[in-house]
Design a binder for these strands. Structure first.
Lengths: 204, 204
DNA sequence: ACCTGAACACCGTTCAAGT
DNA sequence: ACCTGAACACCGTTCAAGT
């Protein structure tokens, strides 16, 4: 079937298929995408330069899909909403993390999101000198917990006797439950800590 | 050259070669390791079960190299020392992160480190039901800040006008200074929050 | 016990051929 | 312009054969 009169493929369709694979946790690759689209791997090269470009296509979609539409509310509501959204994003696409993390952010819509977060924090009373520090903390938290959410059901599998860890692992929560609990605990810690800081500023 | 009288390979030698590759950012794989060792890929399978085991070996080395020798002191000293060490580890070997993330921890020395941390937290008064949650928080934290330390000097480069972010970025710290400050702030937050939790437990 | 070499099923990518 | 099919160099893994 050469050259159909209406094209089978497009960058959009390729990106969609790639996202589906990732969301299923299936192995991601040119061949797998082609299989899913009922097409030969080589066909894709009429639309994309290679595997890397597909990753770039996905990154563009991610930013749009995960950025909270509105950042209204009190500063701690805003922080919580952004944290939850970013955590989900990193967790559902952990293999994109090295790309996103190692790269300077220039995408206007992403910049704008950080800008609005910065405004919210400044308006809440955080001194301008500290706003970027707080944002850095928030980012580290969401990446860390995103990765944590993406980790396997059993984080530890002791094969030698342990003092206490083995017992805790057997008694404790696993998988999503475990990760959610750690996230909720971490979130509470973070917000409590930030509120404490804010109170200290106001006492000066 | 079958069966040399003194073996060419060992798990140690394999792990060494693997670490060299990863730290160079070179493609990591069984074949690449074999090439570096001047050996056939299939030879490796006399010493390791497969690709995943090599990753576990690397994790084992890293943890041994970076884990503080002693875990003495108060629980918050222990947590701080582990956090600083882990952050350095992730930051100095960023290419390893995508490899080890998502893999169940089985390496005995790594398990033992977590075991000692768990014991320290339990001894400090954290209820056993919460110890794994706290460890999860600590892990997320160190990975997050490790990646932050490994990120580029300029995290943001606004190319369109911003409300406040552009000004903050220009006025604020960059590179290691920025990341160190965020880490110190985050560490303080974390320890404050954990101390608060501990106080709450004791009031019940 | 430990290495080789052939073999297998998989990758990502290129390119001539077809319409 | 857009898809196919053959081809290439790579991957991780298995296994019989050799000492």
């Amino acid at each position: 079937m050469p050259r159909p009169r209406t094209p089978l493929l497009s960058t959009d369709r390729i990106a969609d298929a790639a996202m589906e694979l990732v969301d299923e946790g299936a192995p991601f690759g040119v061949n797998a995408i082609a299989r899913r689209l009922g097409v030969t791997p080589s066909s894709l090269y009429n639309h994309i330069a290679g595997r890397d470009e597909i990753v770039e296509l996905m990154r563009g979609r991610l930013v749009q899909r995960y950025t909270p539409a509105s950042l209204d509310g009190t500063w701690d509501e805003v922080v919580e909403r952004m944290l939850r959204a970013q955590r989900r994003m990193y967790a559902e696409h952990p293999f994109l993390i090295p790309l996103i993390v190692g790269k300077t952010i220039t995408d206007p819509s992403v910049i704008s999101t950080y800008d609005r977060l910065a405004s919210a924090l400044a308006a809440a009373g955080f001194p301008e000198d500290d706003v970027l520090e707080v944002i850095g903390i928030i980012d580290a938290f969401s990446i860390g917990f995103g990765l944590d959410l993406a980790s396997p059901d059993d984080v530890w599998r002791p094969e030698t006797p342990t003092e206490i860890l083995g017992r805790l692992v057997e008694a404790g929560a696993r998988g999503t439950t475990r990760s959610d609990r750690a996230f909720d605990g971490g979130l509470e810690l973070l917000l409590d800590g930030l509120r404490l800081r804010l109170a200290r500023y106001e006492n000066d």
